[in-house]
């Protein structure tokens, strides 16, 4: 029982069997997280190093906790405390970390392809915790896990992903994973943030919320990075919310039991109304809990100890 890859770099590297295996394994770990003693000795003696070159609270905390729950030793390096400020290259930092005995390197970086770059040069298992605007595979895995948990199956579900698709690594990983497992994917947002060429991936592109949300089973909202405002992608956050913000009225176009997801952190009133975010269909906090289980599963399966 292990993955076909040394690293977790891209959702596209995973077969549907790999995806099923991760989700199945995560399910077991979720049970563990419900116990009084939430820790298992599965990876005792292993070392996990989180290398975060971009600010992150939830993903870093989630990886740290997942590694601890599996009894690995964990070190987190953030950009301000590392040698990066002394001019060390990423590769040298990673090699140093590897020489200290890291078994897992979890990397978050603002440049797309950084995880690929490290994986090529490292013996340790590299886990992509978000590279630029490319991918964020563990976020997609926890989204898939959440959909399966709440809905039973992913195949055949209609999933609307709303927001800044162009710059969203979450959206890209979600698209690949959802398509692999047989979901229908719709992308919704302003034309400046939803490249029409993405149709070629096998998704549909919509500029109208009403059209894109119609009879959807899942609505995945993306964070609108406020720094995009003023770069000409949309005139203002007010106009953005007016056109693409998720309100109760808009949500009424989706199926009655549609789930509302968000990878966080949310901008309330920019992409999502508080009433929806805190409403009965929101599974946003379940996503956070599931993230822990999924990341435990990924570490466990990449360790090869399941073999």
């Amino acid at each position: 029982m292990s993955l076909s890859t040394k690293d977790l770099i891209s959702i596209r590297d995973l077969s549907s069997d790999d995806l099923e295996l991760i989700l199945e394994t995560a399910s077991g770990f979720k049970d563990v997280l419900g116990r009084d003693i939430k820790k298992v000795p599965a990876l005792r003696g292993r070392t996990t190093v989180n290398m975060f070159y971009e600010p992150s609270t939830r993903t870093r905390t989630s990886f740290e906790l997942a590694a601890k729950r599996l009894s690995t030793d964990v070190i987190s390096i953030s950009v301000s405390t590392s040698s990066v400020v002394k001019g060390e290259t990423l590769e040298d930092t990673a090699r140093t970390v590897e020489a200290l005995g890291a078994d897992f390197i979890v990397i978050r970086h603002s440049c797309s392809g950084t995880a690929h770059f490290l994986a090529r040069h490292m013996r340790a298992s590299v886990i992509n915790a978000g590279d630029g605007t490319n991918e964020h595979p563990t976020q997609a895995l926890l989204d898939l896990f959440t959909i399966r948990e709440k809905r039973g199956s992913i195949s055949g579900a209609t999933v609307a992903i709303v927001g800044d698709i162009l710059h969203s690594r979450v959206a890209k990983s979600d698209i690949y994973g959802l398509l692999n497992l047989g979901a229908h994917v719709r992308l919704i947002g302003p034309p400046t943030l939803v490249p029409s060429c993405m149709k070629d991936l096998g998704v549909t592109v919509h500029y109208s919320m009403e059209e894109g949300l119609r009879d959807a089973d899942i609505v995945m909202m993306l964070r609108i990075q406020t720094e995009r405002q003023g770069k000409g992608f949309f005139p203002s956050t007010v106009e953005y919310f007016k056109n693409w913000g998720l309100t109760d009225a808009r949500l009424a176009h989706a199926k009655k039991d549609a789930l509302v997801m968000h990878p966080g952190p949310m901008n309330r009133g920019t992409e999502i109304a508080s009433a929806v975010a805190d409403g009965p269909r929101s599974v946003i906090l379940d996503q956070v809990t599931n993230g822990l289980a999924v990341r435990m599963a990924v570490l466990y399966l990449l360790s090869g100890t399941g073999q």
């Binding site: 797309s112 392809g113 590279d131 630029g132 605007t133 490319n134 991918e135 162009l166 690594r169 890209k172 490249p195 060429c197 993405m198 070629d200 991936l201």
Partner: peptide
Amino acid sequence: EGLLSVTMGL
């Protein structure tokens, strides 16, 4: 610029 740049995040 094209589908490849979008899907590579570049």
